[in-house]
Nucleic acid binder design. Structure first.
Length: 258
DNA sequence: GTCTTTGTTGGCAC
DNA sequence: AGTGCCAACAAAGA
C-alpha cells in the first residue's frame, strides 16, 4: 500500500505522535530490516528526539539528533504508535520516555530502515528523483519527454520522479483516459501537461482521503481493483493486463491506445 | 500444493 | 545508455 499518499499519512502520523519526546530505547527485533547499518547504529539514537518529519516520494525521514532515520515501507510497512501492546510484525521499536512506542511494522520484510546525514544526501546517493508533488508542470513534461517506454512505467520510475506506485499510476491513467501501455513518445506535449494536472489532483485527493480507498471521491478506480468491476464512467467491464510486469487495471473503453 | 500481492534491485538481452 | 523482462526477496491470503 505505501505509495506517496500512504507515506504522507505516515509522516503526519509521526508528526502528531512522536516528535519532541526523548527516545529512551531503540529495540531492533529483526535485523533484516536494516540496510547498511548495524543494530547499534539505531540504538545510538537513544537520548535524542524526533523532529522535522519529511517525505520524498515513498521515503520518510525523521530527524533524530544529528542524523536522519530513513524509512521505506516496501509493500506492507506502516507505523504504529501505542502504549501497551502493538500489532504483530513489529521490526523496530522506538520507546519514548512517556511510556509510548513508535513501531515500524512490516509484515513482509520488504521495507527498510537506514540512517543518513540528510534527506538530500540520501536522495542523491540512491538516485531518488524529486517528489512528484513537488515539481512543476514544465519539469514534469521535460522529465518525461524523450522517454521511450510505456507511460505507466515512466510514471513509476522513482529515479525520474518519486511517489507513484502501481496502484496510483493506474488511477492517474484511468482518470486521464490514457492506456497504461501507451508509449510516452506517442503522447503530445499537451497530453503530458494535462497528465500533470491529473497527477496532482489524484494525489491531493488521496492525501485528503488519508489514503483510505473507501474515502476516495466517487468515480475512482482504486476501490474496484481486484473485483470484477465496471467502469464508473462508462459502464464497461474493467480489464486486467500486465504492464512492466505489474498487474494493471484499466477501462478498455475510455483508455484506448492512440 | 498453487497463484497472487501495493516495492525495489540486479542480471541479462536487445 | 536506456529499456524490457524476469527472478528474487518475504509473508499471507485465496
Amino acid at each position: 500500500m505505501p505509495e506517496l499518499p500512504d507515506v504522507e499519512v505516515f509522516r503526519r502520523y509521526a508528526g502528531s505522535t512522536s516528535l519532541h519526546k526523548k527516545i529512551e530505547e531503540v529495540e531492533v527485533r529483526d535485523d533484516r530490516i536494516m540496510e547498511g547499518i548495524e543494530r547499534s547504529d539505531l540504538e545510538d539514537l537513544s537520548g535524542s528526539e524526533f523532529e522535522d518529519p519529511r517525505r520524498r516520494g515513498k521515503y520518510l525521514f525523521l530527524k533524530a539528533g544529528k542524523r536522519w532515520v530513513v524509512m521505506h515501507f516496501g509493500m506492507t510497512g506502516r507505523l504504529k504508535y501505542f502504549r501497551d501492546r502493538g500489532p504483530d510484525h513489529q521490526k523496530v521499536m522506538f520507546r519514548f520516555e512517556n511510556g509510548y512506542n513508535l513501531a515500524y511494522v512490516c509484515t513482509r520484510v520488504l521495507g527498510k530502515i537506514t540512517l543518513t546525514g540528510s534527506p538530500r544526501e540520501y536522495a542523491e546517493e540512491n538516485d531518488i528523483g524529486p517528489d512528484i508533488m513537488d515539481i512543476g508542470r514544465k519539469e514534469f513534461v521535460s522529465r518525461l519527454s524523450g522517454k521511450r517506454g510505456r507511460i505507466k512505467s515512466a510514471l513509476m520510475d522513482q529515479s525520474l520522479m518519486s511517489g507513484l506506485g502501481n496502484i496510483y499510476a493506474d488511477e492517474v491513467l484511468f482518470q486521464a483516459g490514457y492506456h497504461p501501455g501507451e508509449r510516452v513518445s506517442d503522447i503530445e506535449e499537451d497530453g503530458l501537461e494535462e497528465l500533470y494536472g491529473v497527477v496532482q489532483d489524484v494525489l491531493s485527493a488521496a492525501v485528503e482521503a488519508r489514503a483510505d480507498p473507501g474515502e476516495l471521491p466517487d468515480g475512482y478506480l482504486i476501490p474496484l481493483r481486484g473485483k470484477e468491476g465496471k467502469c464508473p464512467r462508462d459502464g464497461a467491464e474493467l480489464k486486467r493486463i500486465r504492464v512492466g510486469g505489474r498487474s494493471t487495471y484499466l477501462c478498455p473503453k475510455h483508455q484506448r491506445m492512440r
